[in-house]
Design a protein around this nucleic acid. Structure first.
Lengths: 238, 238
DNA sequence: CACACAATATTTGTATACAAAGTCATGTCG
DNA sequence: CGACATGACTTTGTATACAAATATTGTGTG
């Protein structure tokens, strides 16, 4: 039953506007962004069967790029693979909460390793990001939140890259992408405090500049912990 | 230069024997196993350009399943994606070492969560695996090592599944697959101690049975730590 | 001889046709 | 009436042809 509903929900309407993929040229990227946004916006609800042909129509591409997109979406945890089929993951409070706990362990370790390997130019890059975040105005407006999301992503990625480990980058990318998306969508709107966040960023950078692994690890753990949602009520479907 | 060598290396010879994929029917699986084994056996050396057509010939399939296999191989960390191309990862001591440090944090957290969620039937399953490992004979022979690798995998996966978190399973699968392969290939042959390992397994199961998260976490961390290679000399290419 | 640039070859990206596997409904027989 | 075989239908898997992008080679010119 619910599968049919999902099917028709995709096929009956034109979601190009909702998905904002009108100007994306490359089919692979179109398909990926389209599916990702459809999941995050709830157009494709938890448990929905992700049919290749229907998604190809939805995103205006063919099945080939859709299949590649589905692999990415599954790898990121937004969908799960079961036998030959794929279904939208559930983002219950419990699941999101656990991913944050994983991030705390993963990224704080990354900060530790980064403290021993980061270059001066990377530290300068971090300083630059801090300054950019300080310059954000109209706090609370969607545009400001979007801008912060982008800079915040760059901040965390710069530190992960500073570990000089390809494996660390691969694993972190997966652990970080889901919570960052979910946060942006459901949590930040209500609770993000840019100034407070940047204070914590500054502490982390100071620890990195002093090449102090213990401090860097602790500061990063505290930072992520402070962004972890702790009330089930602010979560969407769970 | 080295790219050409790689190319001809793939095309000139028939590696079907070396790769042991002769009896795998499904092309997707053939391609995946073939590429994976070629990387682990060193037929495809670190940094080698993974060309789709060449790999399709090597594995006796077409480019479509090869592309899917490449995604998996990249997701597992055996290869890295760069622009539109893919290259064999390097498994330097530093990289392998860092993945073990990540596993320590990830899996010990999994054991903590599992202690609070594991079912009686899963505990029985763990007991069964312990008994099977105890039954392994001819320790030191390849067949025994292979059998232990399989049971060890099941042991760790059972605990990860006991967390009841899909996200935990997805992330762990990626963090665990690489080191387990590398261990089997390069480390265990020389250092694995099945009896000692199973002693540690038993401690973990006891902690889980008592639903003691702290103990379970600590025991798992110690177990993985004990399997982490600590001498660069036993690693292959790094 | 170095360099720019065009022609060519190689490699990946995309679409599509067809095959295989699985699902579901229908109808027949015990 | 129910179990089960059967066949149509749906969905994913695979191969391949073609397009686009990128790298390489060769050639001419300053």
């Amino acid at each position: 039953m619910s599968l049919n509903e999902t099917n028709s929900a995709i096929q009956d309407a034109d979601f190009a506007d909702d998905l904002n993929i009108g100007d994306i040229e490359r089919p692979a990227e179109r398909a990926y962004q389209g599916i990702r946004r459809a999941i995050l916006k709830g157009i494709l609800p938890s448990g929905a069967h992700l049919r290749e042909e229907a998604l190809a129509q939805m995103t205006g591409t063919s099945r080939t790029p859709v299949r590649e997109a589905l692999r990415r979406v599954v790898a990121e945890g937004l969908a799960r693979a079961d036998n030959r089929h794929r279904y939208v993951s559930d983002f219950s409070f419990k699941e999101v909460s656990i991913v944050f706990d994983i991030r705390i362990r993963l990224e704080s370790f990354a900060a530790r390793v980064a403290a021993e390997n980061i270059t001066d130019s990377e530290l300068a890059e971090l300083d630059h990001i801090l300054a950019e975040i300080d310059r954000i105005e109209n706090v609370g407006q969607p545009a400001a939140t979007e801008r912060f999301a982008e800079l915040n992503s760059r901040f965390h990625n710069t530190i992960i890259k500073a570990t000089r480990s390809m494996q660390m980058q691969t694993l972190s990318a997966q652990a970080v992408s889901l919570p960052l998306e979910v946060i942006k969508q459901f949590v930040w709107e209500q609770t993000v405090n840019i100034a407070q966040s940047n204070d914590q960023h500054r502490v982390i950078v100071t620890a990195l500049k002093q090449r102090n692994p213990d401090w860097a690890e602790n500061a990063m753990a505290g930072h992520i912990l402070s962004t972890k949602p702790h009330r089930p009520s602010i979560m969407p479907r769970g």
